[in-house]
Amino acid sequence: MAVSSLEYSSQFDHTPFYCEENVYFLCKKLCANGVADADGSDLYVVFISNEKKQIPLWHQKASKRADGVILWDYHVVCIQRKRGGDSPCLVWDLDSSLPFPSPLASYVSETIRPSFQLFSEYQRFFRIVHAPIFLCFFASDRRHMKDPTGNWIAEPPLYEPIVAEDKTVHNLNEFIEICAEDISTNVGAELINDVSNKKLGVVMNENQLEEFFSQVSQ
């Protein structure tokens, strides 16, 4: 009996408005249950944002519009790319109303909608971080989810905050600070190597995203 996307996605921890933590535990579960490589080497964590912290994405469950569009300050998803073979590149987005997971090409077409003309302040940039690096170094004490008086903007998960292996307690801001001048100019072997070695990965624009993942598989 086939499992629906909704049933499947419900197997993963999901706290609204804590997408970075949701993806952290999603990666761990995909590795643990054999869907991904045990070390997460076929997984990439993708931070989507820009200088203005205004990025439109479609088919988001938090939207109140029929087309599911919402203006996030940033968003985080996981992209899986098996090396070799003809396996499709998959996007794992627990906040999306699209099939879970979705092939990258359809996710880009439906969620990012590159054909939709946007004002420059709404251009989306993508920080690609290799999951094994992310799982070692990411940390968040959730300070970004408190207002100036210390109250929660959105209720946090019940589990303890994520602490990095080097005992860092908060570096989320380093991952979500994305600007146009950080964009890599060429997608090639050097860029792929940088993703595998740099704590903060590499930054690219939406036109480079699919090209990058097509080259990762080679």
Rank of each mutant, 00 (worst) to 15 (best):
V3G: 02
S5Y: 13
L6E: 15
H14E: 10
P16M: 05
V23G: 09
V23M: 00
Y24I: 08
Y24E: 13
Y24L: 05
K29M: 10
A32C: 14
A32G: 13
G34N: 09
G34Y: 15
D39K: 08
N50Q: 10
N50E: 10
N50Y: 11
H59G: 00
K61I: 11
A62V: 02
A66K: 07
L71M: 07
D73V: 05
Y74D: 08
V77K: 02
C78F: 11
K82R: 12
K82T: 13
P88W: 00
C89Y: 12
S96D: 12
F100R: 02
L104V: 13
I112P: 04
P114Q: 02
Q117T: 15
Q123P: 12
V129A: 04
H130I: 09
A131V: 08
A131E: 08
A131M: 06
F134V: 06
F137M: 04
R142E: 03
R143Y: 14
R143L: 07
N151M: 06
W152Q: 02
P157D: 03
I162M: 09
E165W: 11
E165M: 15
K167R: 09
T168D: 10
V169Y: 07
L172S: 08
N173V: 11
C179D: 14
I183Y: 03
N186S: 15
N193G: 14
V195I: 14
V195E: 03
N197H: 14
K198P: 06
G201F: 08
V202C: 10
V203Y: 00
L209I: 01
E211H: 14
Q218W: 15
